[in-house]
Design a protein around this nucleic acid. Structure first.
Lengths: 338, 338
DNA sequence: TCCGAGTGTTGAAGCGTTTCGACAACATTA
DNA sequence: TAATGTTGTCGAAACGCTTCAACACTCGGA
């Protein structure tokens, strides 16, 4: 292995000078600088990460904590990950993978051994058991998702309230006046899973604001249940012309249910989904998506900021983005009114 | 940070003694051992990874090199990853994530700075540009996939020849005597993409061995092409009663094509797919799957072996596993023969 | 009684960086 | 011209760990 001493010898300077050329923490004459740079290139020198970590007590590595629990949508997760890694690299940081099965143990270990400087924790739930641990450990960390209390943390999440509202606004702008909401399975709401409730809340509030009649129902993810829910929505509100669906698994059954009940999309019934973009693309649904890349990037930027001692807001909410597709159309062209 | 010296002081021994308790490289009296262990626990001591790496010139970290190119099936990839990480942890190793966009640069950097001891490279292609680099760098590495020449490398892959053969055997055992093969798009074969050819070869050889008439055709991934291919297969070999499909994207259209041509599955036509298990499960197809967990695990085990100086075979092929589902049935019960 | 062979433990010397204080050499000001 | 900065460079001391050589012991055997 070629060391800083080798470079120094080759360039005819002291090791410390080489170090200063590398870190730029002291002024170095242009001649010396180029000379040293040349030696570095020639010898193919790379500073030993361990030694550097030892001397600076900074590893320049962050832990990426992946849950990998069943039900996470992997393509979205991967987009998070790539965005996060790319951003980290832009700040000269590397990424250590910590999977959930290592649990709290794993977090303690990598932090305790100074292997990483901070944590990027993905897919955080309302009552996540990693949160108290992170709080206690004191290492900088950024969470993607939104636990119950964000005080003292740094969290990034999609603004689900705004997402719910965005759907209503889109439909209202198209002229719809009666909108239904098909949500996650009821257990999800019972479990107090933050995002589901917030989406609903945003949806409801926006509907009120726009003077729109709305009805909401949960949906299980089998065809019969979805059909029943849709039918029930239509019965409660026969003039309903638009549907917001926040349930990936049920999405496939919604189209079938509508067809079975004699409604065409988008002519008789506009549909807006809140779901990963691939899914919406594939089914040609107007949708509000999770901005995965943006979340990953932002989260890593915040982590880097915290590592450099900058203060960060406890909660950063990203605005939702709506992509118009074939499943929504202006109410004015609605054939049923012809 | 609590150091080895703190532990030593607390336990009333020398730092080196603590080190020996930890590494077990020298005999230590039971009394001292428990005393030291107790101090470690009490103080919450974790060895500083950087310091350790510096002293031992071993980082106990391996790089996981992910390509993330379009077209990789992410659920399968994630199963690789988790299996690899879990296995690494069992050997007290951590995993550093290196994404492909960092390219050769990235590999050089992490290897040069002694950040990792070895590489686990996923999704290797026949003429992968990372292969010469890995050869040259001399760091231990294991590849998942199979480049053109494996000499001097350590590669792990599914035995695609055996996979092709396994399909034939399954169908032959069920009594089928005329089998069709629907492959990847023709460009894939033109590109010399190893696994596609090997699967076909295995299929063909097995058919010959079992005295079975076989016909093969590539398939593009739109409905019309698939329909045309299936029709063409049926015309060439009207007595065909089974179909092997090695084309994820076309899989969805095959069922439709068969229905359109008046064939019921499995009664008129048995179908075996070679594809990720989720897909097969979802469509209820008998299938040969990529044993993702097993590949990840094996690969990491091999890497660890290499890191410990053990020699490894240049190529490890994993046997395919066939899962029987609703799309195949014994030929004897075939209604068309009734 | 002395010797040689274990055992268990220690002190000190690395490992490759960074960084602090010191120090020349030179430029600026009084 | 002397005092004072400024700039560029250096030597040495950390950083926290491992490991080698050395050193006390104890224990049989001669």
């Amino acid at each position: 292995m070629v060391t800083i001493a080798d470079v120094a010898r080759h360039a005819g300077v002291a090791p410390s000078t080489v170090s200063y050329v590398l870190t730029g923490k002291r002024s170095i004459s242009p001649q010396t600088r180029t000379k040293v740079r040349e030696s570095i290139r020639l010898l193919g020198y790379h500073p030993h990460a361990g030694a550097r970590a030892l001397a600076t007590s900074r590893a320049n590595v962050v832990a990426l904590v992946l849950p990998l629990r069943p039900g996470v949508h992997l393509p979205v997760l991967m987009r998070f990950v790539t965005a996060a890694v790319t951003t980290a690299r832009r700040h000269d940081m590397d990424v250590l993978l910590v999977t959930a099965d290592q649990g709290a143990q794993g977090l303690r270990r990598v932090a305790g051994s100074a292997q990483v400087d901070g944590f990027l924790v993905m897919d955080v739930e309302l009552d996540d058991d990693r949160v108290p641990l992170l709080r206690q450990m004191g290492q900088p960390s950024v969470l993607i998702g939104r636990p119950a209390a964000v005080k003292g943390l740094t969290c990034v999440d999609l603004d689900f309230e705004a997402a719910g509202a965005r759907c209503v606004d889109h439909l209202a702008d198209l002229g719809h006046r009666y909108i239904g909401f098909l949500g996650a399975p009821s257990v999800v709401y019972q479990r107090n899973t933050g995002y589901a409730q917030r989406t609903m809340a945003g949806f409801g509030a926006a509907a009120m604001r726009r003077g729109i009649a709305s009805t909401a129902l949960p949906a299980e993810d089998d065809y019969e249940s979805v059909l029943a829910s849709v039918r029930s929505l239509l019965r409660t509100q026969p003039a309903m012309t638009a549907l917001v669906v926040h349930n990936e698994a049920a999405l496939g059954w919604v189209a079938g249910s509508l067809r079975a009940l004699g409604r065409r999309v988008p002519d008789d019934m506009a549909v807006v989904a809140i779901c990963p973009d691939e899914l919406a693309e594939q089914m040609q649904l107007t949708s509000v998506q999770l901005p995965a890349e943006e979340l990953g990037r932002q989260a890593m930027e915040l982590l880097v900021a915290r590592l450099n001692g900058h203060p960060t807001a406890p909660l950063t909410l990203l605005p939702p983005k709506l992509s118009g597709r074939a499943s929504t159309a202006p109410r004015l062209r609605h054939r049923g009114t012809a």
